[in-house]
Simulated scan of single mutants.
Amino acid sequence: MPTKSSSRAETRTTSIDAPPEAVLDLVADPHNLPRWAPGVARAVRPDGDDWLVDNGEGETRITVRVSREHGTVDLLAAADPRLGAFTRVLPNGDGSEYQFTLFFPGDVPEDAVARQMAIVQDELRTVRTLCEPA
């Protein structure tokens, strides 16, 4: 069903051979962002209820909203919580499925969306590598 939104949603997912709790523990802790999303966060530090994320070019303030009950971890722009990455960890057999959704304004060029989602795919592979037993 069409919406009146001018945003485009893109979702990627990966299966992980680890329990949902292990995946949630990794992605829900902002200190871990540099480990699995180094392009977004080279360093992270708490600032009140928010987090300051340094991407190497400057700092961005984010809000991390976690619901362990629902398996969600949202990494949101502190200035506008409608913007950010919306993620969810789901049980999948003995393992997990990690879903990652970004919204893009309707006028973002297709190649820019494709580049960003390729980065997301790399991040998802890194989450899988960090969570699965060696």
Rank of each mutant, 00 (worst) to 15 (best):
V64W: 05
G95R: 01
F86A: 10
L75H: 03
P2T: 12
Q99V: 07
T72A: 12
L102N: 02
M1T: 13
T129G: 10
D47R: 14
P81W: 11
R115F: 06
D122E: 12
E97M: 04
S7F: 09
P81L: 00
A37S: 12
A79H: 11
P38D: 15
P109V: 03
V120C: 04
E59F: 05
T11P: 00
D54Y: 04
G58P: 05
A77R: 07
S5D: 11
T87W: 08
A85R: 12
D80L: 14
R88T: 03
V44Y: 00
I62A: 00
T3Y: 04
T13G: 10
D80W: 02
P20Q: 11
G93W: 00
D47K: 09
T63R: 14
A37L: 09
A18M: 12
D17M: 03
A37P: 11
N32W: 11
G48F: 15
G106T: 07
P133E: 12
I62K: 02
L76W: 08
S15L: 09
P30E: 14
Q99F: 09
E97Y: 11
L90F: 10
P109C: 07
D80F: 13
R115Q: 15
S6R: 14
G84D: 13
L26D: 03
V66A: 10
D49E: 15
P109W: 09
T72V: 08
D122C: 03
P91T: 05
L102Q: 09
E110S: 13
V89A: 05
D49W: 08
L33P: 00
A9W: 12
R8G: 01
P19E: 14
R35V: 08
L83R: 14
L90W: 02
M117V: 05
A22I: 05
P46S: 07
D80T: 05
S96C: 15
G39A: 08
Q121R: 06
G93V: 09
E10H: 14
T129K: 15
T60G: 06
H31D: 14
V127A: 04
L83C: 05
S96N: 02
P34D: 06
F100I: 09
R68D: 12
R45S: 15
R128C: 02
D107W: 15
G84A: 10
M117N: 04
G71T: 03
K4A: 08
R68L: 10
V108W: 13
A134H: 15
P30Y: 00
T126G: 10
E97L: 03
V120T: 02
S15G: 11
P20C: 10
G39S: 08
A18L: 09
T14Q: 01
Q99P: 06
P91I: 12
R35W: 08
A18F: 07
W36E: 04
D29W: 04
D111K: 07
D54T: 03
H31Y: 07
R115N: 13
P38S: 11
D25Q: 14
F100T: 02
Y98E: 00
D49T: 15
N55E: 02
D50I: 06
A28T: 04
